[in-house]
């Protein structure tokens, strides 16, 4: 049977996503391994998350539907690109964001991830970015719903990926 990461990428392609860029995280290392190994995805490994968002915007302007992968630390880096590029220019994208520091308690993760782990979902709400948390039983309908919202609003939406979902 295909790995969770392979099935996830297939699901994204079935929903019309056809451009992939981002910055890696260990929580979705299974996905990045496939993207890096298979040239047909045209995956562009960006140097910063906001640059990945810019590249995704360019790909959208050129006719593609992009996905941007990032660790949640990169959400902090991306804030200005989201609010002063994508959201004001009507540029849709699916953000796949890892949830390091989930729960915000020391012992759960390294110290540098705890605050972002704690504030990430309120931050997404504050930024008016609709999101779903990756849960295998509801993944397909969640991607369906997020993609519909993204096309209707022409704005970014996010899928939040916790530990153990896309590491293989």
């Amino acid at each position: 049977m295909a790995s969770p990461s392979r099935r996830f990428l297939d699901l994204l392609e079935q929903h019309g996503y056809n451009y992939f860029t981002g910055v890696p995280c260990s929580l979705f290392e299974g996905v990045t391994r496939i993207l890096d190994a298979e040239p047909r995805y045209g995956y562009l490994s960006a140097v910063r998350e906001d640059s990945a968002l810019g590249i995704a915007a360019g790909a959208y302007l050129g006719g593609r539907q992009p996905v941007v992968f990032m660790q949640n630390s990169g959400l902090g880096v991306s804030m200005n690109a989201l609010v002063s590029l994508h959201q004001i220019y009507d540029i849709p994208a699916l953000l796949v964001i890892s949830w390091r520091g989930e729960g915000g308690k020391s012992g759960n993760d390294a110290p540098e991830h705890l605050i972002m782990g704690d504030v990430m979902t309120p931050l997404l709400q504050l930024l008016r970015i609709p999101f779903a948390v990756f849960e295998p039983p509801t993944l397909a309908p969640d991607i369906d719903r997020l993609t519909c919202t993204m096309h209707e609003t022409r704005r970014p939406v996010a899928l939040v990926v916790g530990k153990g979902r896309l590491q293989s």
């Binding site: 045209g42 562009l44 968002l53 810019g54 915007a57 360019g58 790909a59 050129g62 690109a81």
Partner: peptide, 22 residues
């Protein structure tokens, strides 16, 4: 012409994504 009014620093990233897909 695409005029980027915010997101300072990202014009080259936008151009890169565009150049790759077109």
């Amino acid at each position: 012409r695409f005029y980027m009014i915010g997101s300072m620093g990202l014009a080259s990233s936008i151009g890169l994504g565009l150049a790759i897909v077109q």
